[in-house]
């Protein structure tokens, strides 16, 4: 069986397409690379969707936390505190069992107890809280002069936020937000190790890596393959976010541009 056959059989295994049975013996390097890569589909799915949807809630949370309205401020503060103050691992467990209990109340929640939706909701809320805190910090450091200039030009309300405050906030927050994105993708590996079951063994990359490590009792092959995939993914994120960073900073002289620096302080 050549490696291309393996790709055809297992390339989309994590989505339930192709060979149903996972390999039970003869664990070739090719099989491990293909199956773990197939699992990466889920990591990218969870990470990308949670990041994009979380971005909007994060902006709302940042504005809420900085607002003068007591109700909006307290609500945002509590939301951010709950999701940043507790481990994501426990949040996954709690959410899974919560959805499971709700399922017995109303069948509407059936989809939530499977990973593709339930875990996505948790990751969405979680990343919104972490990014919201980053955006809030950036919102507070928007230069006063920028806002005053906007006032002088007759901007107010929504146009002022949309055209002046928000772009500056994004520009200031972007280096930290890049780190948040990297760690969000890393956090997606927790999904199938918390309560959420991998139906029909359709798991993510770590799920398959763990499967191989357990079967062969040899951690020195499967985990480095997984590490390689994640390093590539991390480099891709850094490249993409770096391009956006350049665009956000395009009006500034080059020495004043914020550089994206890796800081591992946003883990969950």
């Amino acid at each position: 069986m050549s490696c291309w056959d393996v790709v055809a059989d297992y390339g989309l295994r994590s989505l339930g397409i192709g060979e149903r049975l996972l390999p039970r013996d003869d664990f070739t390097i090719c099989k491990q690379v293909v199956l773990i890569g197939s699992g990466m589909i889920w990591n990218v799915y969870f990470g990308a969707l949670a990041l994009v949807s979380g971005f909007f809630l994060a902006t709302a949370l940042a504005v809420g936390k900085a607002s003068h309205n007591r109700l909006a401020r307290k609500a945002s503060e509590w939301f951010i505190f709950v999701f940043r103050g507790s481990p994501l691992f426990i949040q996954f467990f709690f959410a899974y069992f919560l959805f499971l209990s709700l399922k017995s109340v109303s069948p509407m929640f059936g989809a939530f107890s499977s990973a593709w939706l339930g875990a996505l909701v948790v990751l969405f809320l979680n990343t919104a809280a972490y990014s919201g805190e980053i955006f809030y910090g950036a919102l507070l450091s928007v230069p006063k002069g920028d806002v005053e200039a906007a006032d002088a030009y007759g901007f107010s309300g929504w146009p002022r936020f949309r055209r002046i405050i928000w772009p500056t906030m994004l520009r200031l927050a972007w280096p930290a937000y890049t780190n948040e994105a990297i760690f969000l993708f890393h956090a997606t590996t927790l999904v199938y190790f918390s309560g959420f079951p991998a139906l029909q063994q359709r798991g993510d990359a770590l799920y398959y890596a763990n499967y191989f490590a357990d079967k062969t009792f040899n951690p020195f092959v499967a985990y480095p393959i997984l590490a390689g995939y994640f390093i590539v993914l991390t480099l891709l994120i850094i490249w993409l976010f770096g391009a956006i960073n350049t665009r956000l900073n395009r009006h500034l002289p080059s020495e004043r541009r914020a550089r994206v620096r890796y800081r591992p302080n946003l883990m969950r």
Binding site: F193, N210, P219, F230, T234, P264
Partner: peptide, 20 residues
């Protein structure tokens, strides 16, 4: 080492690797 790779991978890796 910790850049780019999820920490949970190290957790799962080191427990077996150290034992062996």
């Amino acid at each position: 080492m910790v850049r780019g790779v999820p920490d949970i991978v190290f957790f799962l890796f080191f427990v077996i690797a150290l034992d062996q």
